[in-house]
Amino acid sequence: MPMIEMNNVSKWYGRFQVLAECSTQVEKGEVIVVCGPSGSGKSTLIKCVNGLEPFQQGEILVNSISVGDPKTNLPKLRARVGMVFQHFELFPHMSITENLSIAQVKVLGRGKDEARERGLKLLDRVGLRAQADKFPGQLSGGQQQRVAIARALSMDPICMLFDEPTSALDPEMINEVLDVMVELAQEGMTMMVVTHEMGFARKVAHRVIFMDQGRIVEDDKKEAFFGSPRSERAQQFLSKILHH
């Protein structure tokens, strides 16, 4: 039973079709990298997985729960799906510790002390224990993104979604974030990652999805993708991002 299953998902903004019959599966423990040119629908696809974006056709199951079903308790489902954004989206008016504990307390009903402990442990893990009492605005981009990953982990997610987690970072900060993600992947976290970091893909991805104009045009085992991509579009795209 796959952790994430998409069957023929289509979505429109008015007349404009953003997603066209997208189907794929993510098994438990699998790491999937999603790439493709700007505007191809990567963010939209990943936001459909936890219902942040509605879709008009098809079906998405997360842990066998249907995301599109109006009867589904979306907040409950989302609480178990970690999400990391391009622009971090930490809550700026809360200290780092509060960022890590508020949802544990308000959503999962954990005690304040328990939530704080868990938060501090995760801060340790991403190497930011010393920043616990600071505010997001006082941290560098790379640090903020590591906190954002820790915040997602604080909810004990069953899988995690990343939307270009390193593309808003200065180059020297990209690796500190990728390192955390590689470690997560190696520990067996189920991950769906929109990124153009092909180094990351080569290292830990099981499969690579290539999107173009709202369609999944490649969905291959990593080896096959980097070896001989079938579509010309993917070929061009790969050569562009690999040579810089």
């Binding site: 942040l52 907040p75 989302r78 178990r80 799906v81 930490l90 809550f91 008016h93 508020i102 959503v107």
Partner: peptide, 25 residues
């Protein structure tokens, strides 16, 4: 939209997202 999505993605309901994330800022 980013803060709203971040709140919802953490599992907050819409009212909780307003209460804890959007309105304080």
């Amino acid at each position: 939209g980013g803060q709203r999505m971040a709140g919802l993605a953490m599992g907050f309901t819409l009212p909780q997202t307003y209460r804890h994330v959007l309105l304080p800022m």
